[in-house]
Structures are given as C-alpha cells and as structure tokens.
Amino acid sequence: MTASPPTIRHPKITAPQFTTPQLSKERALSARRRARRTALIGWSFILPNFAGFALFTLIPVVACFFIAFTQWDAYNPPVLVGVNNFTRLLGDSNFWISVRNTAYYAFGHIPLTLAIALGLALLLNRALRGIGIFRTALFFPYLTSLVAVAIVFNLLFAPDNGPINQILNSVGIANPPRWTASTEWAMPTVIITSVWRDMGYYMILFLAGLQTIPREYYEAAEVDGANAWQRFRNITLPSLRPTTYFVLILLTISSFKVFDLIQVMTEGGPGRATLVLSQLIYRDGIVQGDYGYASAMSLALFVIVLSFTIVQFKLSERGNK
C-alpha cells in the first residue's frame, strides 16, 4: 500500500489551509525518508549485539520451537508429530504439578525479593563510613558457592537437630515444621533460601537506580515540608520505575526458570513437592532422551513468561507516559 499523506485521510483535523496537496506530499515523503533514516540508525545501534544474539541464541531457540512439534531423541533425525507433544502435555500430571510448583515459587520469590532488595538498597544508600563493607557483605550470599549454600541451609533446616528447629523448640514451639523433609514446607524453605541468595543481587540494581534520582528533587521536597514517607512515595518510587520494572521482569523470568538451587537443595522432592518446570524439562529431555516433548514444555513455559512480560511491559510503558 502506498502511504497516502495524512492530510488526505484526515483533512478535517490536520490539513492546514495553506498547504497545497503538492507540498504535503513532499512533506510526507521526507517524513518517510526521515523515518527510514532513523530506523537505519536505530538498527545500526542494535545490530552488533543483535547479530551475536540472533546467531547464537535466537537460532537455537527457534530450533527448539521446531523440535517441539517432533519426536526427537537428540541423536537420530527428528520425526514430525504435529501437536502430539502438546496434547500429551495436557494429560501429564507431572507437567501440571510442576506448573503449580513453579507458580508457587514465583509468587513467593518475586514479591519477597523485590521488597527486601529495595529495602536494603534504601538502607545502604547513605553516607556512612564503611558503607561499602556492608554492601559487599550483602552481595556475598550471591557469591557463595551454590553447593555450600545447599549444604548449609539443609543443615540449618535439618528437621531433628538443626539449629533453626532447636531455636523454635526452645521458644516453645513443640512441633516445628520439618522443612525440606515435608511436602508442605519444602517449597517455603526453598523460597527462603533463594530470597536470601538473590536479595544482594537485586539490591545492586536498585542502588544503581537510586543514583539516577537527582538530589534536587529531595531538596525541593524538603523545602516543601514533605516527610520521609511522602518523599519515598512521591519521589523515590516514581523515579525508580524503570529499575523496578527491570528487576521485576528479571525476577519473573529467573523465578519461572529456577533450576540450580532446587536441583542442589531438594532435587524436586520430597515426592514432587518442589518439582519445577525447568527440572522436568531437564529430566524428560536430557535424562530420558525425550527431547521433542521437553521442547514442547519449554514452549509452554515461554508462553507463560511471555504473557507476564508483555503485561508488565504494557504497564510500565503506560507508567512512563
């Protein structure tokens, strides 16, 4: 379709009276040229990263989407099976249990980490001597080896002689939770551990975000007599919106594909109490060699996360306007 000049489509609204059709056509043409030029510039910025990304990540991901419609053992040529893998998903109790568990994990992990990381960032964004030491210390959980984290938390939460239950006993709780040994408490235990591990990471992002808020905003607010809460509510939070959105998306994505921590802490147990989607994808695909089916599961996970991302993107863009 040849783009007709806007003046013709909406003459009542935009056509200025002194514009001759000839002139408006030229203007539209140059606007298009300008748009093309801008697009070219935009792409030139994006391309160096996008080329590498497309070649080494996007192509395999697209291949994974194709494999979802095949039966493939990761060795012999894949065989097209249509939507069989997807119909099989619908009746697979492991799939639904892991979707439920993944959602449980995400809805526990996302708000807790977000709130604590933001709290820590606000707490540590101040001029105290040696503040760097505290920031470093808070980042350490993220650096501690995952194996060590799993060992220590399992020891701390040991149901019979672990320090945590000993403390709970001594304050009069006769039947403390059995933590990772119980189907009810295993997921909360994993969530607590992951919040502990991740909060320093997101704190760093929030700290970087806090640096972008001009101090003058606060000074002006103080002059206006705003109290601490009002300053937080009316300056800090709105100014942090891009950072918060970024943290939220990252948290959503990392929560929905959580793997390592659960693998070393509970391996999905007891029973299927902490079995999450990524683990099921790993088990069915790599361990059991049912790669086509595992790819179908990844596609389902992708759709779940994508819909969350789009909702968050829309909300954030609306907020920006």
Binding site: I151, N154, L155, F157, A158, P159, D160, N161, T180, A181
Partner: peptide
C-alpha cells in the same frame, strides 16, 4: 533416619 541422612548429605 531418612530426613537427617538427606539434609546432612
């Protein structure tokens, strides 16, 4: 017991 064996590896 099983839970202790697993939690203490």
């Amino acid at each position: 017991d099983y839970s202790t064996s697993t939690s203490t590896k």
